[in-house]
Every structure is written in C-alpha cells, then in structure tokens.
Computed example of a mutant assay.
Amino acid sequence: MPEHKQGEIVVVTGGSAGVGRATVREFAKAGADVVVLARGKERIDAACAEVEAMGGRALGISVDVTDCDAVEAAAERIERELGPIDIWINNAFAGIFSPFMEMTPEEYRRVTEVTYMGQVHGTRAALKRMLPRDSGMIVLVGSALAYRGIPLQSAYCGAKHAVQGFLDSVRPELDYRGSQVRMCMVQLPALNTPQFEWARTHMGKKPRPVGKIYQPEVAARAIHFAAHANRKEVWVGSTTLEAILGDEAASALLDEYLAETGVDGQSAPAPVSPGRKDNLFEPVPGDFAAHGRFDDVAHATSTQMWLNRNRGAVAGAVAAVAAGAGLGFMLARRDEG
C-alpha cells in the first residue's frame, strides 16, 4: 500500500453537517487531511468516510465545543495522531428561533456558549500550538448577522457580534507580537442547511431563512479561500454586502423594515411537526449531511464572492478600461484641435 502523502491538517468544528460538512468535503477534495469535531457519532463517521474516499486521512472526535478542556484534549490528540494543525475552522454553532422574552436563560446561555465561547475555546487550543511554530491559520465562521441583528435570533446575533469583537481584539495582538499566525472571519448569508430542521423554535411554523438563499458549498469555497488568503474578513453573497452596508447607512430604517417583515419572513407556511426534536442540548440522530430542504430555491454560486476572490484582476481590468477611455478622450480632443 503506497504511503500517504501528507497534506494540510485541517480541523473543522461542527464538521458533521451543514456548512461544516460541505467545508470538510471542500478541504478533502483539495487534498487535506481533515479532523471532524462534532457531537453526533453517526454524522462524524459519515463525514470521515467521505474524506477517506477522497484519499485523505480523517479523524473524528465527539466533542462539545463549550467544554474548553475537551477541545484542548481533542487538539492534543490531533497533533499526536496526525501531526501539526495547519488550519483550524471554528464553525460550530447553535440557534433558536424565538422572541427574546420567550427564551429561557438556559437556552440563551447555551446558544451563546456554543456559538461564541466555542470559537474562543477553539482559537485558544489552536493558538497554543500555532504560536510556538509561528505558523497557522484560524478561520472564524461568522454571518451577516454579526453586523445586523434580526428579530427571533437575538442569542445567535449577539454571539456572532461577540465573535466579531473577539477577532478585532486578538488579531492586532498577533500583529503586535510579529506573529505569522493569521486569523480571518467569513461572514455568511442565508444558507440551505439542516439547521432549519433541528434548531429549537418557539414559533408555531417551521423556521426558514430570510432573503436570498445559497447552497452550503458556496460557504465552503469561501472558507477554503479565506484559509489561504491574507484577509481580515471575507463577505459572502450579495445579501451579506447589503446587510452590512445597509446597517452602516440606515440602521434605524432597517429596524423599522425588520419590525414589519422580520418575524413572518422567518416562518414557512407549514406548521412545526409534532414531536420535532432539536439539537440545542443534544445531537439529533441521523445523517443530515450538508443540505437542507431549500434545494429548489438555493443558489449554487455567488457573483459577489467571485468578485471578492478576483478583486485584483477586476481592479486591474477596471483601471485598464478607465485608462483606455482616458486615452480615447485625449486623442479625440487632439483631433478636435
């Protein structure tokens, strides 16, 4: 049996489903060895099998990212069994669809601890190993909602805002010490993932994403790009751009608009199924993989992300066109003279 050629060693938290599962596939396709950190063993095993089918080494570890000691133990095991971690992707999150006053303190705390503190714990474990080597990349998976909160998701939006502030603090600390370890945050749009099937909800109807919906592979490609680019942030999707810039320009007007549309817009016509299980405190059984139930309306590409990836070439093309137009204008004026 030929010896495996070691590629990048990449850790993906929440890597068993949704964006995490698509990201695991994206890195495996590029030749990486991938570690899947999640809770549900069935989905972890399925994700690892996909990595191995593409020729990579896979390691699956069942861990709750709210447990700092467990995340640290997982990182130690990864380096012992696979080697030095090159890229750590903090993707795990939890969500709940509910008016703020209808959530319990325990529910709110759980969303915050998974979505925010999970990224803090992952970053700590990664930096502990990357700083002495002076190399490595940490990707924080964020959302347009890190800038612009919406109704029914105050816990999730607050946590993503916190991740944004965390990035703003830690990144210059790395720069101050002259470290070559890099950090980047990817701000994602609405995505067609299983979260809408298993996120806890206090609403009577099935939750759904708002605005333009993208396939999780769009997010996965953006995360792979961010892990290899020298950027602080990568915005994905036209709706992310609109939400962030719109909030900067007219935040109060967005409040009024969301008061009118933000609640009903997150509810599908169908009622929540009786006995529906959610994954807030325990994983839901079954292999949900990457996609949710919105394949018929989800977009598989993002023009905005293409422009983001190729902004150097685009800027050069725009400059060339502008220069050509300027030259034509000068020649025309010369002929007139």
Rank of each mutant, 00 (worst) to 15 (best):
N90I: 06
Q187S: 15
L37E: 02
T23R: 04
S135D: 08
P2D: 05
R80M: 11
Y156Q: 00
A49G: 09
Y257D: 09
A28W: 02
A30Q: 09
R171I: 05
A58T: 03
H228M: 08
V35M: 04
F100M: 13
P209F: 15
V65P: 00
A30Y: 06
Q304P: 01
V284G: 09
Q195S: 04
M103K: 04
E197Q: 11
G95S: 12
F288D: 10
A322N: 12
G178C: 04
S238V: 14
V263I: 15
A259V: 00
R25Y: 10
H228D: 09
L245I: 14
L37V: 07
V24R: 01
A249L: 15
K29E: 11
T303N: 10
W198P: 00
E173F: 00
V71C: 01
G136E: 13
D247V: 02
R148I: 02
G158W: 12
G158A: 02
E217I: 10
M203A: 15
L307W: 12
A315D: 11
R109C: 06
E197N: 14
L280Y: 00
S169Q: 07
G14D: 03
G31I: 03
A322W: 03
E81W: 09
A317F: 04
T104K: 14
I150P: 03
Y147E: 05
N279G: 09
Y257F: 13
F97V: 04
R311G: 02
Q195K: 05
L82F: 07
I85R: 10
T112D: 07
A332V: 07
Y214G: 07
T193G: 05
G83S: 07
G83H: 08
S62H: 01
A249D: 13
T261Y: 14
D287F: 09
D296I: 07
A298Q: 01
T193C: 03
M103R: 10
G95I: 05
F97I: 14
G204N: 08
P209S: 13
E106G: 11
V139S: 12
Y108A: 15
C157L: 05
V163F: 09
R333Q: 15
H121K: 03
I89K: 00
E107I: 11
A325Y: 06
V163L: 01
R171D: 13
L245M: 14
P271K: 13
S16T: 04
E26W: 11
L127F: 06
M54C: 03
G316C: 08
L241I: 14
D296T: 12
S16K: 02
E217M: 03
R221C: 08
H121S: 00
L331G: 00
P285I: 02
